[in-house]
């Protein structure tokens, strides 16, 4: 058997296993270098605690139940804010993508609001809501709204008009046309919006929690700063990174599941 005949089989056998691991090589190397730098004293402990110290701090907080409590609070705020802002953005995207009238009525206003950085509203939001839950939910929802709105709108507007004409020729009514042609056609773009929105969701939450909160990961970090617990500060940052990664992986998995027809998601 020639080498050319063997090659494809070897590739298909190895690729998935390597793929799963390769993405973790760089974080692992960074962790090792970091540990080495701290242990040798190259980086002083008050600037940067060693990964093992961070892990220890994490363990202590975990045992006391504080960590789980704070992660849960942040996760709850993030997902509820995302659901509220995302649904409203999706609804406006649909309405403005499907109806000329709705688009004429609201699009200009929304585009103006979009250009205000939503974090600039923090002082106003504190005046309105205090440091209540609703303040955080409002900010997250506002931040998430725009990427979902814009990408849903874009997705619907760019559905191939030839496919829509085809659907009409074959007797699809509006609801069926939406279900079979418009929505699936807009889905790839909607997912782009979701992934942007997830990034904005964490950013907004961190800022909101560090400024005005009495619980949550951001609050935990600020609290630790007061007491010079640098290991807890670093721990919070790492947890944010991890949660961000989890959210991104979840949306990718959903993408793979629903866009399996798309050439970009097909196995080769």
């Amino acid at each position: 058997m020639s080498i050319v005949e063997i090659l494809p089989r070897v590739r298909s056998f190895r690729l998935p296993r390597i793929d799963g691991l390769t993405q973790w090589i760089v974080p692992l190397v960074i962790l090792l270098v970091w540990q080495a730098a701290c242990v040798t004293g190259y980086v002083p402990a008050r600037v940067m605690p060693a990964p093992t110290d961070v892990a220890l701090a994490g363990w202590k907080l975990l045992v006391s139940g504080e960590l789980a409590q704070n992660i849960w609070v942040s996760f709850w705020r993030a997902s509820v804010g995302f659901l509220i802002g995302g649904s409203i953005g999706f609804a406006f995207g649909l309405a403005n993508g499907l109806s000329q009238l709705s688009s004429k009525l609201t699009d200009t206003t929304l585009q103006m609001v979009r250009n205000v950085p939503h974090l600039a509203l923090i002082p106003l939001v504190i005046l309105w809501f205090g440091i209540d839950e609703s303040a955080k939910l409002f900010l997250v929802a506002l931040g998430v709204f725009f990427p979902i709105y814009l990408n849903t709108l874009h997705g619907i507007r760019t559905v191939d008009p030839q496919l829509i004409e085809m659907g009409r020729i074959y007797g699809m009514r509006n609801s069926e046309l939406f279900r079979r042609v418009i929505f699936p056609g807009a889905l790839p773009s909607i997912f782009v919006g979701v992934r942007f929105a997830l990034g904005i969701m964490w950013l907004t939450l961190i800022v909101a929690e560090t400024i005005a909160a009495s619980s949550g990961l951001g609050y935990m970090a600020m609290q630790a700063r007061e007491f010079m617990q640098i290991d807890v500060v670093v721990l919070s940052i790492l947890i944010y990174a991890l949660l961000g990664k989890v959210a991104d992986s979840a949306s990718r998995a959903l993408e793979r599941l629903t866009l399996s027809w798309h050439p970009a998601f097909q196995k080769h």
Partner: peptide
């Protein structure tokens, strides 16, 4: 029924469900 220069198949539907669309 009409057939165009482009096949105009729904990329997110299987070949069979694309044909089913033709049943009106």
């Amino acid at each position: 029924r009409v057939m165009f220069q482009e096949p105009r198949l729904l990329p997110w539907a299987s070949v069979l469900s694309n044909v089913e669309v033709g049943l009106g």
